[in-house]
Amino acid sequence: MVDQEHFEPVIIGFTCNWCSYRAADLAGTARVKYPPNIRLIRLMCSGRLDPTFVLKALAGGADGVLITGCHPGECHYLEQNYKALRRFLLLRRTLVAMGLEPARVRLVWASAAEGVKLAHEIETMVAEIRALGPLRWGHNGTASDSAHDTHAYAMAGQEVSP
């Protein structure tokens, strides 16, 4: 069990090469601080984001996923960030239906100049996920044969009286 007090969220951040990755870079060079809980992965464009990446991150132990891209109308591949937006909204609905808190997945637009904004978004997200606690999707019951406890719990109720 992770100690809630010392819980350090792991957040996977998918960034666009042309905007948000540079924004993160800018934050770095400008010495704007943001928490080290985020692991950034650079994509060429938010449109490259296959929802599989997000599911893999969550199933693999991430506590949240941040998706970033160029502002609407500013994508270097014209319309791809709108595509990312549509995917994101449908993905989030699906994840919520699977029991995920919506705050664990986020879409943020950040231009290359918005280092401070991006740092702030990351800070907010880390704080929110810290409050939510660990996700632990990876530690599920796929490997358990010793299901006795669950069974007993599920069937707490009356025994058949002989």
Binding site: G141, T150, G157, P162
Partner: peptide, 22 residues
């Protein structure tokens, strides 16, 4: 009534399969 993995009946103990979490 919920089925139980083990149930005592006059003839002895009945066992049914244990339900897994998933």
């Amino acid at each position: 009534v919920r089925p139980q993995p083990e149930t005592r009946v006059p003839e002895g103990v009945l066992h049914i399969p244990v339900f897994s979490p998933t």
